[in-house]
Write a protein that binds this DNA or RNA. Sequence first.
DNA 1: ACCATGGCTTGGAACGATCCAGAGTTCCAC
DNA 2: GTGGAACTCTGGATCGTTCCAAGCCATGGT
Lengths: 345, 345
Amino acid sequence: MAVPRSGGHISAAPPTLADVAELAGVSRQTVSNAVNNPDLLRADTLARVQDAIDKLGYQPNRAARSLRTRASHLIGLRMPALQEGTANAMMDRFVHSFVEAAAETGYHVLLFYGDPADPLDGYDELLRSTAVDAFVVTDTHLGGQQTTWLQSRRARFVSFGRPWTQPDAKHPWVDVDLAYGAEIATEHLIERGHSKIAWIGWHKDSLLGEERRSGWIHAMHTHGLSTTGLASRTEDSISSGKAAADAILDETEPTALVCASDTLAMGVLHSLFERRLRLGEDIAVVGFDDSQVAQTVPPGITSVRPPLEEAARELVKALEELLATPSYAAPGVMLKPALTVRGSS
Amino acid sequence: MAVPRSGGHISAAPPTLADVAELAGVSRQTVSNAVNNPDLLRADTLARVQDAIDKLGYQPNRAARSLRTRASHLIGLRMPALQEGTANAMMDRFVHSFVEAAAETGYHVLLFYGDPADPLDGYDELLRSTAVDAFVVTDTHLGGQQTTWLQSRRARFVSFGRPWTQPDAKHPWVDVDLAYGAEIATEHLIERGHSKIAWIGWHKDSLLGEERRSGWIHAMHTHGLSTTGLASRTEDSISSGKAAADAILDETEPTALVCASDTLAMGVLHSLFERRLRLGEDIAVVGFDDSQVAQTVPPGITSVRPPLEEAARELVKALEELLATPSYAAPGVMLKPALTVRGSS
DNA sequence: ACCATGGCTTGGAACGATCCAGAGTTCCAC
DNA sequence: GTGGAACTCTGGATCGTTCCAAGCCATGGT
């Protein structure tokens, strides 16, 4: 439904409702109705008003509309600040999907980054100036501080990430079942004939990390495989991924490695490079996130791909409901990831 | 300058100017002045009003302010839609930098993606509804369609990318001198002792591609090196990068390769992987963009790093001037990239 | 002929801020 | 003591839209 673009004519100030009303010979309110409740108008009046709207290229002024309706049709999306070296390229796929999904339902996205040290940074200003209708919260695994605070301010929001520490939270959320992701990754390797499959994951206090780890353990045990000596926990960085791989390759000699992130997988690749081992031939590696890096490194890293496009759509759907009915309490939505198989396994 | 966050109390509706005025015992206008022109007030009045503002946690309503001042303090940033497989991870570093730079001067960023086939998609709606004060245009190498149209609509904008096809364009722009980038990349390889240095670049009709290529040629000729048989032109994708590398490695046996993008460099890596050649030992490779991939692939790809943070700051600076003085015509700003040296060379 | 009904349209008020012109104070020079 | 400038502060109008209550008009049943 492309709006025809008024091409050549140069207009000093954009046309207003009053301009349209005058041209169409009706009152302002009738034009407003033509835009917002067309079924209230008689067919011929509607046509006349539409003509005038098209002729002038009229579009309602957002500020005026927001002021009156108390709705900006803007969604605030807070992203965690990028850290140099960490491959969270996943997130810009999410941003992209979300912006597109929001655009389809007439919402625009106001992107902001908060100081990672202060999970509330940025929200307050936007909220108090009523700049946005709702927020999308992304780092729920860092604790419930953000959601608790937003709730206390009566702000509307949805979260991309389950309410880890607050099982009774009422806000809508969407998350990806990455325990399941680890499970299918591990099973894929088992199918390929591996039995000594190591895990390189995050520290014990990382909720996300423990969840993914549980999927690996479950798959291993289901197939009667031992996990002893095969797990290591470290930080989410390339250097610690390399160190962990070095240690576990020396000690236990696994034939395959499942990594909690593509970043760790890249660390493993560094270890392999040094040892002159060939990825996908001498040893198999699976990562998480299906980042750019996993997609492009030869021969490609098999990776657990979160359905970010679908997550974005679900979030927008939840937002719509939430904004339509303020008391809306949705059940959380848990999506299943898929495994993208590449040369590394 | 953190605004104290009103913690516990739950307020139904945000406080307005009138609320503050009543509490402070002054008129609405005085409160408005306290916020926007504090130096107009007597010191003690200002203090009293400030107290009231803090007590109520007042912040001006954006919609109301926008309506009156005809300024939204929002900048529309149009990004080219992501293409699967193409590593334009560079762009999210730019988005991040730009959002942060804008936030520092009180602007928020409204991110949107346009249909790549229609360079005008998305602008019109935001412009006519006066949703944003200005735009940042990013794909100027695709031709002047966007800027010409925006100019005809009297929209304010700056571009990240020089006005390639319109040398007489008047709008502010910021760009990175990537001919220089290719030059330092090539010289770096020459210093390392290479003399047969091949170029893997884009098609002839790519303005960006020809520019980068000229830097390689210039460096080669300056050092008395021949370029015949060492250049190839192809599409910006991994598979064509691999094909180009295959061809040139078979034919001319260069010892080093300069690639017009990290994506092409990844294609080269695929070729090397297949040939069991070791990156950085058997052959040297340099890429462009300093993407996540270049940073993380072992042993790291030497890459030309565009100063995106600086570009973002310059763009914001230009925007500020442009919005302050509508007739502002800035000279374009050309920034120099640096070479990040890694194991691949 | 009348009133009630429902469909369609209208003018005035309101949203919350800033612009503008003017009113009240203060202060100093004469 | 007065005039005038400079400094403070104020109330009303205004931005462009939607909400609200009321008005108009044709229709149809009594």
